[in-house]
């Protein structure tokens, strides 16, 4: 995990309600007078112990699966189990990549996430701009805002059933275009909501200045507002990317060909064909499926934390 952003403000954190990273963390601790240094050291030690425990609880499942993925078949079934594989079987990964379509699943996920997020941004940016800038002028946008909020939380299952029927009628089952459209549709409400909140923090004087100079609203948005909103766009895109990577219900229902299924569906397929003696391959499949997310996390953690917290707090 990246430690590089320790003590540096998350990008875009100047916005209200955003995470203030500990630029002044040291000061607060130092400012506690009248406590003996010995006691402070003991409290610090307790904090470290608790954090260590926390990391253990949250890292262990993945660490264990990583360990399983490097064991031989008999080793997986051995009792008592050991954390370290005797002789790490990297070939397990090669085996999984060769004998299952997991590579294809990963590629599908990448395509779906990229197309879904980019497409959703195209829909969300104008909508978020309108909701942020035209606010209060008409009754419409407020009701619209509610619909956007509601859409974020509606169970994908409720969406999947009617969409499935429509897709069957239109022949869009097992169709990339159809699936991408659905991904865009379910990603757009979150992005719109997030970007609206972000644009709210950008002073309207910025676009008004542009409009005084004769820009149309569209030009003002593209040339002035969007560049100022870039950190928000990036954070929102990353969070949307991570949640889209996790999307399961919709592709599970709308697609049954391995050529189109994303990796979440792929792992379920893998699980259904996996027996006890092939546990190590299933574990390797899991590791391959979460690896991209872990990598994204290691490098972009601060964007993600910033975006998640900004979405929740507005003060």
């Amino acid at each position: 995990m990246s430690l590089s952003d320790h003590n540096s403000p998350a990008s875009g954190s100047s916005r209200p309600g955003h995470v203030r990273t500990p630029a002044r963390a040291g000061r607060v601790a130092d400012a506690v007078p009248g406590r003996r240094p010995g006691m402070r050291r003991r409290t610090d030690a307790a904090y470290y112990a608790a954090m260590l425990g926390l990391v253990a609880v949250f890292a262990f499942p993945l660490v264990w699966v990583a360990s399983l993925s490097l064991k031989t078949g008999p080793e997986v079934l051995r009792s008592p189990p050991s954390l370290l594989p005797q002789d790490p079987q990297w070939a397990n990964y090669a085996h999984v990549l060769e004998t299952t379509p997991i590579g294809r699943y990963l590629l599908n996920s990448v395509i779906l996430v990229a197309a879904g997020v980019v497409g959703a941004l195209l829909l969300s940016v104008p909508a978020a701009y309108a909701l942020s800038r035209f606010r209060g002028r008409m009754r419409g946008p407020r009701a619209f805002t509610r619909a956007v909020l509601a859409a974020q939380l509606l169970s994908p299952l409720i969406i999947a059933v009617p969409v499935y029927r429509v897709f069957v009628t239109l022949g869009l089952i097992n169709d990339y275009v159809g699936l991408v459209l659905v991904y865009i549709a379910v990603t757009a409400p979150f992005l719109t909501w997030f970007l609206k909140n972000y644009l709210d923090t950008i002073p309207t004087e910025l676009d008004e200045a542009g409009r005084v100079d004769g820009c149309s609203r569209l030009r003002a948005l593209v040339l002035l507002v969007l560049p100022a909103a870039k950190p928000g766009l990036v954070s929102a895109g990353i969070v949307a990317g991570v949640t889209t990577w996790s999307q399961f219900v919709l592709p599970f229902i709308l697609v049954d060909s391995p050529d189109l299924a994303p990796v979440s569906v792929g792992v379920v397929n893998l699980q259904s064909t996996s027996g006890e003696i092939t546990t190590q391959y299933l574990a390797a499949g899991c590791m391959l499926a979460v690896a991209p997310v872990i990598v994204v996390f290691a490098f972009l953690q601060r964007h993600i934390v910033g975006a998640l917290t900004a979405g929740a707090v507005k003060t």
């Binding site: 990246s2 500990p22 954090m51 949250f58 379920v268 899991c286 979460v290 997310v293 996390f297 953690q301």
Partner: peptide, 25 residues
């Protein structure tokens, strides 16, 4: 974080990975 301890960001990141992993996985 207020005490200026090390590893806070890493701890937070490790906990958050649970959010990022797809539910089926």
């Amino acid at each position: 974080e207020r005490r200026g301890l090390r590893g806070v960001v890493a701890t937070r990141a490790v906990v958050l990975t649970a959010w990022a992993i797809p539910g089926v996985i």
